[in-house]
Write a protein that binds this DNA or RNA. Structure first.
Lengths: 224, 224
DNA sequence: ACATTTTTTTAGTCAAATCTAATATTTTTT
DNA sequence: AAAAAATATTAGATTTGACTAAAAAAATGT
């Protein structure tokens, strides 16, 4: 196994995340932005990671992780997400308090520690945000998606996709402030027309029609 | 609260330990030795810590922690020892496996984390090696000491002091390889003369007379 | 008391990771 | 297609923590 510094691990994690979400080529500005550093520093680090065989890099043409880079990134994610589960389930952190601490803990190096922690937590497959936890060989389960329309009252989840991507629909979502990644909670279901009252991002309340809620796909959060 | 780098924290911890044990002035060589670095690096770091008000330092005259330094050191110890309890009690590490991992974990910064961890572990007063865990304000309980002579068969502990410090006695202890900090386990007690068969440091077996074992003070390890 | 040994400090390098300022390349606009 | 804007890279500086080699101070032995 290759050994990276905490700083290198942070770059790797961010590059992995950015290259997953967007198929677009990702640039030094994106990375610099995500990691609170300057583009010049990113250029330096990218060259270094390329030498280590973590990613392929051609000047002015963005980066793309190698298989080795992908595997390594998954292990960093694994460590961070296991800690997140620990912090929420055992130490009763709120799920928005875990990020900073997990970000420090994830750089601790000890295979035994993570094997034991995993076991202690009952081999969780998802972290408190619903993101999958890779196993030691980098495999993970996708969390099943359900229609917003099919959720029950009081259930909560995160919006992950839409099944209708017409401009009209997307424009509507934008207007009412519903976006990929937003947290939703079902407040009420109206029998008559199948419309829903939902809460978005723990704050705004909103009514959506059955047509709309049938085209929004959500990952449910674990209940407890 | 003052903020130190992991490296500074390591120096601080070692200086605290060395100045506790030995009343003698401790030198750059001692520190360099304990921390696997070179005396020259110690000189540099000492000057830096003096500037931060962690210790007093006069060229060629050793160091002595300020009150601020002592308080800060106790918090580092607290963090490391809480993790040691966690690793042994929850993740079932052997107590000789915890050191390296706890040494990484202790540099994680988050007051909330340690308050919650402390609570989760049931506010332990001692770590798995029997060392006391300071509370948030730096107070700790001394572990009671008992005579080696008074231990029962199969009990284990760590030698912490001797009540006879004559040269003859110390020379004897030296000769048979018994020293402050050594782990002992009672293997057998001889009714006839009160002598003991003990195991030192998980390896060597040794017989000691009643006179000897009455002058050796031990901290018992927790049974479980 | 002075020579030797040990300990401590200084001076000068080095590597990692960052930064700023300047330059180079690509993309977008007109 | 040239000018302007955005993005990426290099060059050079800085900080942190370490190192080696050499000088300085203190301790020790005879």
């Amino acid at each position: 196994m290759i050994s990276l510094s905490p700083s290198e691990e942070n770059y790797l994690k961010v590059i992995f995340r950015l290259t997953q979400n967007e198929a677009l080529p990702i640039g030094t500005n994106d990375i610099a932005n995500a990691i609170h550093t300057k583009p010049a520093s990113v250029s330096d680090m990218i060259r270094k990671l390329a030498v280590k065989g973590i990613l392929d890099y051609k000047k002015y043409h963005g980066v793309h992780l190698t298989e080795k880079g992908r595997k390594t990134a998954l292990q960093v994610l694994r460590r961070g997400r296991l800690w997140e589960v620990f912090l929420v389930e055992k130490l009763h952190f709120q799920w928005d308090q875990v990020h900073e601490v997990a970000g420090q803990l994830e750089h601790v190096r000890s295979p035994l520690l993570f094997r034991r922690l995993d076991e202690y937590l009952g081999f969780p497959k998802f972290d408190p945000h619903g993101d999958p936890i890779p196993d030691e060989s980098g495999e993970w389960q996708e969390k099943p998606k359900s229609k917003l329309q099919d959720m029950k009252i009081a259930e909560r989840g995160k919006i992950v996709t839409v099944s209708d991507s017409s401009a009209a629909f997307l424009r509507y979502l934008d207007k009412v402030g519903v976006y990929i990644g937003a947290k939703v909670e079902i407040l009420d279901k109206v029998e008559f027309d199948g419309s829903l009252e939902i809460r978005v991002d723990e704050s705004r309340k909103l009514f959506v029609s059955k047509e709309v809620s049938s085209n929004i796909l959500v990952q449910l959060f674990d209940v407890k």
